[in-house]
């Protein structure tokens, strides 16, 4: 696809970097979200911030589940609203979360391999848990399509073309279960999307998210450490350089 050429990538990356500093520093994340939503194709921006090691993110940053770039782009916009880039640090896109989710959907989690999927299916009460016949990757297919069609209904525009606040309104309606969806409730989809976003921010970088352990660094979480026996009694807070599974 044309957007993947180096030129457009560079210029868009530079654009976002510049605008995000302005937006984050002066008027907060809302404007930034709007900029991403209306003018920027976030798909090409995965290694955009100066702090992210671009070598790290390249080899496995390819879609293994999504084959339709427009749908992947909707996912990118949605997760960025859930975990936005701001003065605290990188957002979901910069952290590789869309690729994390894509890879998870392609694997056993996306196919509910270790879950009970035998029928018959009934909706169930609020206390009986997931009862949809949809596999998780089907739930994301349906949910992403519905994000777009609901945006058309509500704002007469594509989800990716909405202002950030409008995207939030759409997501809030999903969260509040106000949107009719095929095969599952919109709340079920939203909760899975939110959970997967946080997983992508904070799971080991081996899974494709949490690029360069930037998610952990924001939280002062040191990832995988062999021992804290010498610090566990300390009265002082200890900053520890994080390590991932690759250093096991």
């Amino acid at each position: 696809m044309a957007a993947k050429t180096t030129d457009s990538k560079m210029s868009r990356r530079r654009f976002l970097r510049n605008s995000s500093y302005v937006a984050g520093g002066l008027v907060g994340g809302g404007l930034l979200g709007g900029l991403i939503g209306s003018r920027f194709n976030p798909e090409t921006e995965t290694a955009s911030t100066g702090s992210v090691d671009s070598d790290h993110g390249t080899a496995n940053q390819a879609q293994l589940y999504f084959t339709n770039p427009e749908k992947f782009e909707i996912l990118q916009h949605a997760v960025e609203r859930i975990y936005p880039k701001d003065e605290t640090g990188p957002g979901a896109i910069d952290l590789g979360v869309p690729f994390f989710i894509d890879h998870q959907l392609a694997g056993s989690w996306g196919h509910n391999a270790r879950e009970y999927m035998q029928g018959p299916f009934f909706p169930g009460s609020n206390f009986q848990g997931y009862q949809s016949p949809l596999k998780r990757n089907e739930l994301f297919d349906v949910g992403i399509d519905r994000l777009d069609s609901y945006s058309q209904e509500k704002f007469k525009n594509k989800f990716t073309e909405l202002e950030g606040e409008q995207q939030d309104e759409v997501l809030k309606d999903f969260e509040a279960d106000k949107v009719k969806m095929r095969g599952a409730t919109s709340k079920t989809f939203f909760n899975q999307l939110r959970a997967a976003t946080l997983e992508g921010v904070y799971a080991d970088p081996a899974y494709g998210g949490n690029l360069n352990m930037e998610g952990w660094k924001m939280k002062s979480f040191p990832g995988h450490q062999m021992s804290y026996i010498n610090q566990i009694e300390s009265d002082k807070f200890v900053e520890i350089k994080p390590k991932g599974l690759h250093s096991y």
Partner: peptide
């Protein structure tokens, strides 16, 4: 490779296969 929160803490690899 046990210090993997996603695999063991969230996806429950050591627990019962509900399928």
């Amino acid at each position: 490779m046990i210090h993997d929160e996603l695999r063991y803490g969230i996806r429950y690899e050591l627990m019962q296969d509900l399928s």
